[in-house]
Simulated assay, not measured.
Amino acid sequence: MEGTIIKGIGGFYYVKTDNGICECKARGKFRNKGLTPMVGDSVIISAKDGNGAIEEIKERKNELIRPPVSNISQAFIVFALKNPDINLELLNKFLVQCELKNIKSVVCFNKVDLVDNYEQHEAVKMIINAGYNCLFLNAKKEIGLDGLKEKLKDNVTVFCGPSGVGKSTILNRIVGRTVMETGSVSDKLKRGKHTTRHSELVEVHGGFVVDTPGFSTLDLNFESKEELQDYFPEFSQYKHECKFSGCLHYKEPGCEVKKAVDEGDIDLNRYQFYIKNLEEVIKGGKNKW
């Protein structure tokens, strides 16, 4: 049978199949290959007398280390418009991380009730200009959550974003029960020396959500200076028109990307963020965020 690992604990893996959830152990051959099954893996299993075994782990589309989960298709990047104020650089870091991992980004602006004319907020205009999908929420009053629920179908979704923006509240409201603690309790749990936290996929609204926050560490090491521009999708319609085929959109003449920035078609904050990281890559530094 084919299925998806939705939970793993103590060497047992719980695989959701068309026939229900099967408790499985992994074959020893995976250990010999240095391969460990992960939550989110698409697997082939065998089952006999109630005992299951993972026979094959299909190729992963992507994988995260924190939380340990594979085959994520979508990220809800949650930022509050106020309390705390938005850090544009951090928001761009999350977007690049998703691009690098081949994860579709949906930016969720929470606490919209705290800001007047929130659609004119600098961060909102930046995200819309870059072509990303964004949603506006007041999680405590459950405003905007229906839009989130509609995007869950047929996806494996992870929530990410800085602390204090409402990730736990949003996830709990979507699932309909407490899957993540909120506020000070959450901070204590995350800092506990002996706390073991296992990621789990929760099935809801025709898809799965990861029950822990994503991207607790942003660590991007780019292969080359040419690679970085691939993670800025708004560059794509301009970069092939540049005068030089290997244009980095930095100091080269005849650059259509720079022209688009000057004309306001590419957001200046996004471009400056790109240049800052390009210079870091050129200098040979590692992008550990």
Score class of each variant (00 low, 15 high):
Val78Arg: 05
Cys24Tyr: 01
Gly11Ile: 06
Glu203Val: 03
Glu234Ala: 10
Glu59Trp: 05
Glu55Gly: 03
Asp85Lys: 14
Ile57Thr: 01
Gln237His: 04
Gly183Arg: 13
Asp211Met: 05
Val112Thr: 05
Leu152Cys: 00
Leu278Ala: 12
Lys188His: 12
Trp289Ile: 14
Ala75Gly: 02
Leu88Gly: 00
Leu189Asn: 06
Pro37Arg: 04
His194Ser: 09
Gly264Ser: 03
Gly40Arg: 10
Thr4Tyr: 04
Lys140Ile: 07
Lys149Pro: 09
Ser46Val: 03
Ile143Thr: 06
Ser105Trp: 06
His240Leu: 08
Gly10Cys: 03
Glu263Cys: 02
Leu268Asp: 15
Gly164Pro: 06
Val202Gly: 01
Phe136Asn: 13
Asn32Pro: 03
Phe12Asp: 13
Phe30Lys: 03
Ser199Tyr: 00
Asp85Thr: 04
Asn83Phe: 14
Ser105Cys: 09
Thr4Gln: 12
Gly131His: 14
Val165Lys: 11
Gly164Trp: 11
Ser70Gly: 09
Ala47Trp: 07
Asn110Gly: 10
Leu114Arg: 00
Lys29Gln: 15
Lys111Gln: 15
Cys242Asn: 12
Ile5Met: 08
Val96Cys: 15
Trp289Ser: 12
Glu56Thr: 11
Gly207His: 01
Leu145Gly: 06
Val185Lys: 14
Val115Met: 00
Asp85Cys: 05
Lys61Ala: 12
Phe79Thr: 01
Val209Asp: 11
Lys61Trp: 10
Asn269Asp: 15
Asp267Ser: 10
Phe215Gly: 08
Ile174Phe: 06
Val43His: 08
Leu278Val: 11
Tyr118Phe: 13
Ala53Ile: 07
Asp154Val: 06
Asn117Ala: 11
Ile72Met: 04
Gly8Asp: 03
